[in-house]
């Protein structure tokens, strides 16, 4: 576990040495800030619902951009070999990299805390859904990070890793919008698989163990799949 911490530390600081962290954070704040506030005053309601509605879609593009380099870059420049011949386990590597992505996403969300602070001055803000929304965002970030990490482990090309990551994450985000295409029998199943469905539950302020379990199991599946890819590469 100590090793996982040092891997996390290296990955996380490398985000800030290269411009990735700054670019991703800027783009995230620009996009969410614009889409949220451009309609905020027209709705004239003191809540963050539109901000959280947007997140599964924005995250589908932002999170794979954060995770794309985690394995692909190492595979490409050959440091993957160095990493795996150091005294670390596959688990250390995966947890370290996953944590780096998750902490970066949390860092990225931190400035948006100014939105509820600002809104609470303007009107009577209900803090329950806000708290739920942020918990949900971090869970969603974890699930997407795990998927992005898996996409990155598949290829040495960062662009391909990004595109695979976006396809998987975006697919999960829109799954519950597509339910009317499906026969009635499987609707329940596909709704359960949809990230957006669970995220919307939490961001209403209802923290249900089923939704939490969903995000944790998606995260676990992504990390486990990365582990299998690493095993297969030997």
């Amino acid at each position: 576990m100590r090793q996982a911490y040092y891997i996390f530390k290296r990955e996380f600081s490398s985000y800030f040495v290269s411009p990735i962290a700054y670019i991703v954070i800027t783009v995230f704040l620009l996009v969410t800030g614009w889409f949220f506030f451009s309609t905020f005053f027209a709705y004239n309601q003191a809540n963050l619902r539109n901000f959280f509605n947007l997140l599964p879609y924005v995250f589908s593009f932002i999170v794979p951009a954060v995770t794309m380099k985690l394995f692909s870059e190492e595979l490409n420049i050959g440091t993957y070999e160095i990493l795996l011949t150091m005294p670390v386990t596959f688990g250390d590597v995966i947890i370290g990299k996953f944590a780096a992505s998750l902490v970066l996403i949390t860092t990225m969300l931190a400035p948006t805390l100014s939105y509820p602070l600002f809104i609470s001055i303007l009107g009577d803000l209900d803090w329950g859904p806000v708290l739920g929304g942020y918990i949900g965002s971090i869970l969603l970030g974890a699930a997407y990070s795990a998927i992005g990490l898996f996409a990155s482990s598949l290829t040495r090309n960062q662009i391909i890793a990004f595109i695979i990551g976006v396809a998987l994450c975006f697919g999960m985000a829109i799954l519950d919008q597509m339910l009317f295409f499906l026969p009635g029998v499987v609707v329940g199943l596909f709704q359960y698989l949809a990230a957006d469905f669970h995220f919307q539950n939490i961001s209403k302020g209802i923290i249900d163990s089923r939704d939490i379990l969903y995000f944790l199991s998606i995260s676990f599946t992504g990390l486990y799949a990365s582990n299998l890819v690493m095993q297969g590469r030997r």
């Binding site: 290296r10 490398s14 040495v17 420049i77 050959g78 440091t79 070999e81 160095i82 011949t85």
Partner: peptide, 15 residues
């Protein structure tokens, strides 16, 4: 207990 130098010494170039 084993040290290894891979071919062409790949390193983290930003460090």
């Amino acid at each position: 207990r084993l040290g290894y130098l891979p071919e062409s010494a790949p390193l983290y170039h930003e460090m």
